[in-house]
Amino acid sequence: MSILNLMKSVIAEFDITLLERVAPGKYNVVGTPPKFYKDLYPDLNAPWKTSSFLEFFMETAELFFKTHSEGDDIISSGLWQEDGISSEYALIAYAILKNGERAIIVRQLKEEFAERKNILQKARESLLIQRQLHMEASYDIVTKLYNKKTFLLAFSEAVKNAQIWVTPLSLLIINIDDFRIINNTYGIPAGDAALSELGAVMSSSVRSDNILARYGEDEFMLAIPKPIDQAVEIAENIREKIDAHKFRQPEHIHISVSIGCAAYKKGDDEQSLIDRAHQALDDAKKCGKNIFRKR
C-alpha cells in the first residue's frame, strides 16, 4: 500500500492532515481535513501561509527531502501551539519519505500533550520547591543578603583557594554603630527596614565575586578576593556611602558603621582571619566609631 493510500485511511479515523508534496515547497491537502485544521486554516488552498511554524517546518522538510532521496525515514518537529488555539492541545508535524513519496502530516495532540505537559510540570514544580527551600535556608530574609551559614560555606571555599592558589583574600567585618539604640527607639520593624536599606547600599558597592552576608544582628561580613590596600578602599567607600545615605525609614535617621579589615596571611584558616578582622573592628570602635581599621 502506498503511503498516500495508507494515510487516507488513517485520516478518516484520527485528527490528522496529510499534505502531499507535489513540487518543492508545494503541497496539496489530501482527504478531508479534520475540524481543528479547518478552524486554524480556513483557506485550505494555502494553509501553511497562515502558520509561522508550519512554514518554518516546510523549509526544514525541504532540506530533509533534498538530502534524503531513498529509504524510509521520518523526521518530526517539536510541538507547537498557534496563536489563539486552546491551551489543551498542540500540533505536531512530521516530514515523511517513503518509497520516493514525500509528504507532511500534521497531527493534533491532546492526551499525549496533556501527559507530557503534566510530567514536565511536576518535575519543574519539584525543582522550584527545592530551589525555594534552598533560598530560604541560604538568605537573610530582612536584608536579602546571604545568611551566616551560607557565608561560612562560601568563605571556607575562598580561604581554601587562597591557601592553594596563593590568591589574595581580604575580610571586612562591618558593624552598625549603636544599632540597639535604633531598635530601642524606633522599634524592631523600623530597625529591620533600616537593615534592609543598609543591605541594598552595601550590595551596590560590591562586585559579583565578593561574598557579602549578614553575619549577626548588626554585623555584616564581606570577603573580597583582593589585597588589603584594595579592600581598604572598598571599606572606606562603603563607610562613606552609609554615612551619607538618607534613610527612608526610620525617616532622617543617621546610621554609621565601623569596619575591621584583615588580609589572609600564610597559615591562616577561616577562624584566624575572622579573629583578626574582629580585632581590627575593636580598634575602630575604640577610635570613636564610623571609621575603619586594618590588621
Binding site: F53, G78, Q81, E82, A90, F113, K117, L120, Q121, R124
Partner: peptide, 12 residues
C-alpha cells in the same frame, strides 16, 4: 500560576 510550555508557542 506556573504552566510549563511544551514545544513552541506562537503569538502575534
Amino acid at each position: 500560576s506556573y504552566l510549563s510550555t511544551v514545544g513552541v508557542k506562537i503569538s502575534k
